[in-house]
Amino acid sequence: MSLIQLIILLFLAFSFLMVLLVMKGHLAGRLFFIVQFIVGALFVVFPDLSSQIGKLLGVGRGTDLVLYFLVVLFYMTVLLFIAAMRRLERRQTIILRQLALQNAIDNTRMKTAEKEVSAP
């Protein structure tokens, strides 16, 4: 095994564990990343594998195949992040609305108060 393979495997394993830790209680997400890790590790350990699968799918080189998947995955990740952000935005709205309602100022009784206290 060459040095680069070892380095990439180490990074892969590290980020894999981090992702699993963060995704507490998300079984589907965890399974997704477990599969991803296995496929990634296989590609690193057997560099020819990507080329073989690429040929099978009608893509010339293995690196191209990896690039295509990367683009698709990137868009999926962005979409997931946007969805998560929108959920956060909705929660933020609920919190801020509650805050606004709690701090509402009722100035409507001023009219009667005005009569008692003469304006300076």
Binding site: Q92, L96, R97, I105, N107, M110
Partner: peptide
């Protein structure tokens, strides 16, 4: 508005006109 007899509410950050109407 403080001299006017109104109800006043404030979002501490901008959420959009729809959100303000709902509040």
């Amino acid at each position: 508005l403080k001299e006017l007899p109104v109800h006043f509410l404030r979002h501490c950050i901008n959420l959009g006109q729809g959100a303000a109407l709902q509040t």
